[in-house]
């Protein structure tokens, strides 16, 4: 039974994978072009698994940055992940936990978190843990697989048709919009408005990773101050 829920999580991760594979391919191609060895590039995706910060890591590795410069830079970019686990914790503990906590947290990226927020509540309590692990694993495999493709086929992929590259650019925005529609926006209008207004105001003046943290907190504060259930 748990295997079926796990498989459903893997299937649901395909929407994330559709967004991850092209970005991971770009990462692989860019890292090889920057002069890193294939082993380093693939190991980065295997060990770090954190999209945007990996692109920064390429630049830091190429420049020969010391660990005490590079590690804080990467962790600062990923600091928003601190909030993701606690936000999901209540839904995941609806039934007694079978898996150790590391299995819940290894793949908690922006897109996995967004998908879990939108769809975890639609799973039965008994299915949630297996579904969520399937979702994480599918996203992880798509990211690592995409990186391998970028490394192996980097000469071919640099010359892909414009139609394909443009379509792939739209996958992640489309995914976030579809997830937003999935989670009944009217029910969460306060936090959505707070985060949207804050992000729109800040996105042209601050780096994206700061904008995400500030907008998330602003939306959460709006929701907590405005009403118990943030409902219309």
């Amino acid at each position: 039974m748990q295997g079926r829920y796990f498989a459903r999580g893997l299937v649901d991760s395909m929407a994330i994978g559709a967004g991850y594979v092209p970005v991971a391919i770009s990462f692989g191609v860019a890292a090889i072009a920057a002069g890193l060895s294939p082993m380093v590039v693939i190991l980065t995706s295997v060990l770090v698994f954190a999209g945007a910060s990996q692109f920064i890591l390429i630049a830091l590795l190429v420049s020969g940055a010391a660990w005490w410069v590079a590690v804080p830079a990467v962790l600062l970019m990923n600091a928003r992940h601190l909030f993701y686990g606690p936000a999901l914790y209540g839904q995941l503990t609806a039934v007694p936990r079978r898996l150790p906590l590391p299995a819940w947290s290894f793949g908690l990226t922006d897109e996995v978190f967004a998908s879990a927020v939108a769809k975890l509540g639609q799973q039965s309590p008994a299915a949630r843990e297996a579904w969520y692990v399937g979702l994480q694993l599918g996203a992880y495999l798509a990211w690592v697989g995409g990186t391998v493709l970028g490394v192996v086929f980097n000469h071919v992929l640099q010359n892909a048709p414009i139609f394909v590259t443009e379509a792939l650019n739209f996958v992640l925005p489309a995914l976030f919009l579809a997830l937003l529609l999935d989670m009944q926006p009217k029910k969460h209008w306060l936090s959505l408005c707070g985060a949207t207004v804050t992000a729109v105001l800040l996105v042209s003046v601050l780096p994206v990773h700061y904008v995400l943290v500030i907008a998330m907190l602003a939306g959460a504060v709006f929701a907590s101050v405005g009403g118990r259930n943030d409902s219309a």
């Binding site: 998330m216 959460a220 504060v221 943030d230």
Partner: peptide, 13 residues
């Protein structure tokens, strides 16, 4: 606050 983080994160992303 934690209940509001999820929807806010999707909107920000």
């Amino acid at each position: 606050i934690l209940q509001g983080v999820g929807p806010a994160a999707i909107a920000a992303l």
